[in-house]
């Protein structure tokens, strides 16, 4: 007779974590083996992976379906520009400063829009993003409605050579992706994460267990906003130019991100990562078709939502509940006992 034990890792997850470690090493070395265009693409992939993971954390785990995360992407861009241009901060310092400002601003925003429920909450987040857009369009020192470019001095402050700069931006993107996925993973494994899962599964039951739903969701919202602001800062460091329409674009920073998560599999850690890879594969093949590719993406996302609501990852893992990230606790030894 065997003993029962509880553990989170499975042979699949141990293998996956090892493979992930290896992949990270290879990707870390990318500046030495990849060309300039690939490096830029990889950087963009990591930034979208971060945005998708964050949106999934918000919507898939905390049930806060936002269609206004572009508010924080744009805020991050503008705060990064302001911090480097007006306050003379080093770009590497300006990024975390932008993130802190984003988190600080998101707290009163949350207090306000948490008064809206469900889908109305979603549109409320959009209003907030519009307010940010219209506000920054009024700031003439940041170029008003037409936007501004990052001064050469700031860019050079990062690194004198173009190659060095691009490698650094790439490493920042890789680092932020690791940070974001790692932070969400750590949060979900913590006590708070267990509370979050309990709320998702049954809000009423969670309440009766003494879980403070408002605070838990508030924390998730603020953490997500701060990290999204960080990603936004880096996005516009990579672009070197910012304008209100680009910074607060609902298509670029929310629609695409939502489609990525839905197609990959909402409510899992693996889904957004898989979805990002699928999205970029599609984009690189269909980019020449212009608008039709956004239509196709929308159609695919609707089809997935209707016919495979758990996304591609849900299809792959099937009923066995395979997890590459060791997240759920599993009881070992049960099947052996049954035999």
């Amino acid at each position: 007779m065997r003993d029962l034990s509880v553990s989170r890792s499975t042979p699949a997850s141990t293998l996956a974590m090892a493979a992930l470690g290896a992949a990270l090493l290879v990707m870390f070395a990318a500046p030495w083996w990849a060309g300039r265009a690939e490096l830029r693409l990889f950087g963009e992939i990591f930034l979208y992976m971060s945005l998708a993971t964050l949106w999934n954390f918000l919507a898939g785990y905390a049930g806060l379906v936002s269609v206004g995360q572009q508010a924080y992407v744009g805020l991050g861009g503008y705060m990064f520009f302001a911090a480097t241009m007006f306050w003379g901060l080093n770009p590497l310092l300006a990024l975390p400063v932008a993130a802190l400002i984003g988190a600080a601003i998101s707290a009163p925003v949350a207090a306000l829009i948490f008064r809206l429920r469900g889908a109305y909450f979603a549109i409320g987040t959009w209003v907030v993003a519009e307010v940010f857009l219209l506000t920054f369009a009024q700031v003439t020192s940041l170029g008003g409605g037409s936007g501004t470019s990052l001064p050469v001095g700031v860019v050079k402050g990062l690194s004198e050579s173009r190659d060095g700069r691009e490698a650094l931006i790439y490493w920042l993107a890789l680092g932020i992706a690791v940070l974001v996925v790692g932070a969400v993973f750590a949060f979900l494994r913590s006590r708070r994460g267990v509370a979050l899962t309990a709320i998702r599964d049954n809000e009423l039951a969670a309440k009766s267990l003494g879980i403070d739903i408002w605070w838990t969701k508030f924390t998730v919202y603020v953490v997500t906003a701060g990290l999204t602001t960080l990603v936004g800062g880096l996005i516009f460091l990579q672009k070197l130019r910012i304008s209100p329409d680009a910074a607060f674009s609902v298509n670029d920073w929310t629609a695409v991100v939502i489609f990525i998560v839905v197609i990959g599999g909402i409510g899992t850690l693996e889904g957004p990562i898989l979805g990002t890879l699928v999205y970029f594969a599609l984009r690189e093949t269909l980019a020449d078709y212009g608008t039709i590719y956004l239509i196709a993406l929308g159609v695919v996302a609707i089809a997935v939502m209707l016919f495979a609501p758990k996304g591609l990852w849900g299809l792959i893992r099937g009923h066995r509940g395979t997890e590459l990230f060791p997240l759920s606790r599993r009881v070992r030894g049960l099947t052996e006992k049954g035999q």
């Binding site: 379906v65 889908a119 629609a255 839905v262 039709i292 956004l294 239509i295 996302a301 609707i302």
Partner: peptide, 28 residues
């Protein structure tokens, strides 16, 4: 009608997808 149920995510995401489709179809 296929999205109507207790979960508010499906109708929200499907109408959001619809929004992007209509917008880009008009653009074309």
């Amino acid at each position: 009608n296929r999205t109507m149920g207790d979960d508010l995510l499906p109708p929200l995401l499907v109408t959001f997808g619809l929004s992007v489709i209509i917008q880009n179809a008009l653009l074309m």
